[in-house]
Design a protein around this nucleic acid. Sequence first.
RNA 1: UGGGAGAUCGUCUAACGGUAGGACAACGGACUCUGACUCCGUUUAUCUAGGUUCGAAUCCUAGUCUCCCAGCCA
Length: 575
Amino acid sequence: MSTETPLLQQHFIRQIVRDDLAAGKHSVIHTRFPPEPNGYLHLGHAKSICLNFGLAGEFAGTCNLRFDDTNPSKEDVEYVEAIQRDVKWLGFEWAELRHASDYFEVFYQAALKLIRGGLAYVDDLSADEVREYRGTLTEPGRNSPYRERTVEENLDLFQRMRAGEFADGSKTLRAKLDMASGNINLRDPALYRVRKVHHQNTGDAWPIYPMYDFAHSLSDAVEGITHSLCTLEFEDHRPLYDWCVDKVDLANDPALWQSLVAAGLPTTPSKPRQIEFSRGNINYTVMSKRKLITLVSENLVDGWDDPRMPTIAGMRRRGFTPAGIRLFWERIGVSKQNSTIDMGVLEGCIREDLDAKAPRRLAVIDPLKLTITNLPADHAETLTFANHPKDDTFGSRSVPFSPSLWIEREDFAEVPPKGFHRLKPDGEVRLRGVGIVRCDELVKDAAGEVVELRCTLDLESRTGMPGSDRKVKGTIHWVSARDAVPAVVRLYDRLFDVNDPDDDSDGKTYKDHLNPGSRRVVHGYVEPAAAGLEREDRVQFERLGFFVADMHDHTHAAPVFNRVVTLRDSWAKQA
RNA sequence: UGGGAGAUCGUCUAACGGUAGGACAACGGACUCUGACUCCGUUUAUCUAGGUUCGAAUCCUAGUCUCCCAGCCA
């Protein structure tokens, strides 16, 4: 199956890695996945996870999981736990689990080195003043009046920042670059800020915290990362990334990371190369952390793992498979072009994986009674069904059969449309694994609605009999009313009713475009073998779609299923 | 009007001066005790205008459009 060995896209990052290895630039590659623990992981993160861990695995390198926890005011342990769970679930193992905060002492020493080299200075400007001095996109900035402080003064001030002598926001450490640069990131970017906040990993040990550019680049170098993969918006930061790595030069200055050696952390600093790729946007959903958090906190969805959410946790509860998600990102590829991927591609990958891996079961989600009149009412039989139509290793199961059945309401039409292959008055259809029935009689209620079909079963056409090869146009599924187990079935659809919920140019926001029909809960019946499934087991309910036993709510006595995705339906399409 | 990046079938993506290819979707057909799966076939693309060249998606020139950057966020 292509699910096992997806066709590998020869994308540009894979080529760079291959070339670097071939040229002997590296003997092994090291990558990392560096999430900030301030939210749950989503499908977009999965792209980065698949890329970083995937490349490392493919080329026999290693990949670290690193929490980019340099801003304690936004981060939370709930997230660090969820992130680890999600990465593992996706099928990846990190070589080492690190935190940027593990390197705080290294960063501090590195900052002192920059100060000594006249490459950084302590600035007293307020945030507002810094903004003013920075200039605009089209006008250069101006030098801070504190820019020419002496090395001694800067050293003293920065050490006192570290000692906690100054209030939040009163001072920053800035790189001394070029206030006139066309690249605004190079207009003396902040390296450290004062923030007397408790940190989830380091407690109250630090009153100052490093900024992203400084911490991220040095973290990569400390960990010996060879290829630092990130998204397009960091392209402008690359000169700063390289500046930090080069000026600090960890590889030639072991004293800077002595603290790590002492702590027993293996350290071989590298000169990492940052490579940017485009994010993968998906239509009919939102992927920004802010919007996802809002959906959760305002109870617009049922938590982070709501099956409609594009979070890893949500997709897991929905019943999506790790292999399907990995296949999806491999199929999409990696480039630098902005793009929006059709949700249908993801669904197709999930179907492809599940078609091969999900055993089949019978279930009816919109029940209509069908009675077989030419069998005794107390007739009871046990039929044997294959669990998979083309893979014998799935084995078989027993399915109870009786003359009193539930069939799908949409498999009967009193006035059939053209091309209808299912049951109609005086028409014939095959009951899956049973034989051919003819609809003799309709029973209607007072409102005129059909409530029961009375049919005769052609005994010659029973499955296994020579007459079973008689051709009828349609085959429908059923469950024995006497034996079936009532089940709650949740039918999910896209969370938003517009292609691009992020587009608010019409004055409406994503919240105005929530799809009211995105979750329907129905009560149906499943065969006993489906009720007996374990939580998170996935099956195909024949002719309906793929379903998963809900990881929280499902029990054998009261089964609860989530619809993962429907089957492709070329009939529904034309109808 | 500063700096950075990107424009190729409907969508995603390949090409590295030499036949614009693949995947997905769509459409048509075969098969079918799942209108699924599978199989076969078909349609559709180089942002524009010039130039270099025997030959240009690729190189050059000039435009056009899109995205990112003015956090003490990442």
